[in-house]
Design a protein around this nucleic acid. Structure first.
Length: 326
DNA sequence: TTAGTCAGAGTAAGTACCTC
DNA sequence: GAGGTACTTACTCTGACTAA
């Protein structure tokens, strides 16, 4: 069973919000593109694993573990009575060759990071974690390539032992059917959980006045919105979203763009470009945020990880529907 | 299709708190 | 104490939903 939810990376949410409200630099646009491709691969991996079934396993997805005073990110940890399997997911496309520790992409040249070395380091850290807790975990790892258009060429048997290609993925997941989680797996999972920490690497923020204020269409991204009583209608694509939907999206953007900057009702009103009545902003803040302080010193903290989570969890508590034109 | 109900949106007035 | 700010309360209007 999946223990943790795979969420969009914070950097992806930051760049998404930034891209809506400013023109991204070439570097940021490229980074955003790579993050989106990576996310697509992880979702494809989850879909196929879900189809294959995983009831007898503890599966941790997209977690950061603090081990030996440093923090390592793991795409997927699969825990059973046999130990831990690390899966590092690479949504590569195209033809790649591996010789020694050198990865080369056809037409692009050498790949800077050696994926197998990264995997070995991640596996080694988990082994040392087990030793530190008096439990010598059996830890192994695989590089998983979920994209159908990825091809790998290598004469080294050692490489093939450590990778799983898209065509073999169902069979690979099927191999876990005989595994189960008992007392030992539960103890291992308990140790893992005690070492999970928030992502310590994401620190990017921008100044409040450095980005465009206002609300934008969830369908096409246009800021040209026409105010109706309960909805805002996009003048570009015709989509109609409720005031509440727009405010939740703005709260999520605020969280990732400005980080530690306190979210107040005044700042939120300014950030939304005054497109929604102040009283409506206050109601939405009360519904979707934890409030800190009182009266003039009140600030708000968005309750949810991001816009998508808020929309899913509060779906039954929303009166007005959204009409998005694709 | 229509009528009734519910609840969100918007307005005005009031309260509490802070700064000068 | 005056003025400004942040929020609450009370009320009306109206869109969305549902049952007949």
């Amino acid at each position: 069973m999946f223990i943790t939810i795979r969420k969009k990376p914070e950097e992806l949410l930051f760049l998404n919000a930034l891209g809506r409200r400013t023109a991204l630099s070439v570097y940021d646009a490229d980074k955003l593109n790579r993050l989106e491709i990576g996310m697509t691969g992880e979702r494809e991996y989850d879909r196929i694993f879900g189809d294959a079934g995983h009831n007898g396993l503890y599966i941790y997805r997209d977690i950061y573990l603090k081990i030996e005073n440093s923090v390592t990110q793991y795409d997927t940890l699969i825990i059973s009575e046999s130990g831990i399997v690390v899966n590092e997911i690479k949504n590569f496309t195209g033809d790649y060759r591996v010789a020694g520790s050198m990865w080369t992409r056809e037409g692009s040249g050498p790949v800077p990071d050696d994926a197998l070395s990264q995997l070995r380091r991640a596996v080694g850290k988990l082994m040392r974690l087990g030793t530190a807790h008096g439990m010598n975990f059996d830890v192994s790892g695989k590089l998983v390539f979920p994209n159908e258009s990825f091809r790998l060429f290598s004469n080294e048997e050692n490489v093939w032992k450590q990778v799983v290609l898209r065509v073999d993925l169902r069979q690979y997941f099927g191999g876990f059917r005989n595994e189960y989680s008992g007392t030992y797996a539960s103890q291992v999972a308990d140790i893992i959980e005690r070492h999970i920490v928030p992502n310590p690497y994401f620190k990017q923020r921008v100044e409040f006045d450095s980005v465009r204020h206002g609300l934008y269409c969830g369908g096409c991204g246009s800021f040209k919105l026409e105010k109706h009583q309960f909805h805002l209608r996009c003048q570009t694509c015709g989509s109609r979203e409720s005031n509440e939907t727009h405010l939740v999206r703005a709260m999520s953007d605020f969280k990732y763009l400005f980080g530690p900057l306190e979210m107040t009702s005044r700042r939120m009103t300014e950030f939304t470009g005054g497109m929604v009545n102040y009283r409506t902003v206050l109601r939405a803040l009360a519904k979707y945020c934890y409030s800190h302080g009182q009266k003039k010193s009140t600030s708000y903290e968005f309750k949810y990880y991001d816009f998508e989570e808020a929309m899913i969890k509060e779906r039954s508590n929303r009166k007005y529907k959204d009409y998005i034109k694709k």
